[in-house]
Amino acid sequence: MTTRRPGRMAWRKSSRSGGPTKDCVEVAVGEASVGVRDSKNVTGPVLDFPRRNWNAFLAAAKADRLR
């Protein structure tokens, strides 16, 4: 994982985000990496994960192995 400044990426926020504080992260999927940023600070830093690590994270989340 590295951090970088946001560039021209197509960012998506979960359709389930919202609520009174609207706290959420946004994700942008690139060819080789996935960027994650704070939706309240869109000009702030971006966490950049290799695609394979992001896919492993999603698989673990879907299998409920993140406790």
Rank of each mutant, 00 (worst) to 15 (best):
T3A: 01
R4Q: 11
R5G: 05
R5Y: 10
P6L: 03
R8N: 13
M9G: 00
A10N: 12
W11D: 07
W11Y: 03
R12M: 05
R12K: 10
R12E: 12
K13E: 15
S14R: 14
S14N: 11
S14C: 07
S14D: 12
S14P: 14
S15F: 05
S15Q: 09
S15R: 11
R16P: 01
R16L: 09
R16T: 03
R16E: 04
S17L: 11
S17W: 14
S17D: 12
G18M: 08
G18H: 12
G19W: 10
P20H: 06
T21P: 06
T21F: 11
K22S: 09
K22T: 13
D23C: 05
D23F: 07
C24P: 05
C24S: 12
V25R: 05
V25I: 15
V25A: 02
V25D: 02
E26N: 08
V27D: 07
V27S: 00
V27W: 00
V27F: 06
A28W: 01
V29R: 11
V29E: 11
G30Y: 07
E31D: 14
E31Y: 08
E31M: 04
E31I: 12
A32R: 15
A32F: 11
S33I: 01
V34A: 02
G35I: 09
G35Y: 03
G35H: 07
V36K: 06
V36A: 03
V36W: 07
D38Q: 03
S39E: 14
N41W: 04
V42K: 01
V42R: 08
G44A: 01
P45M: 03
V46I: 15
L47H: 10
L47N: 01
D48E: 14
D48N: 07
D48K: 01
F49E: 01
P50A: 01
P50Q: 03
R51S: 09
N53P: 06
N53Q: 10
W54I: 02
W54L: 01
N55G: 02
N55V: 12
A56T: 01
A56P: 00
F57Y: 15
A59E: 15
A60T: 07
A60E: 10
A60I: 09
A61R: 14
K62G: 08
K62P: 03
K62W: 10
D64Q: 13
D64S: 08
D64C: 03
R65S: 08
R65A: 09
R65F: 03
R65K: 11
L66G: 07
L66C: 12
R67F: 10
R67P: 15
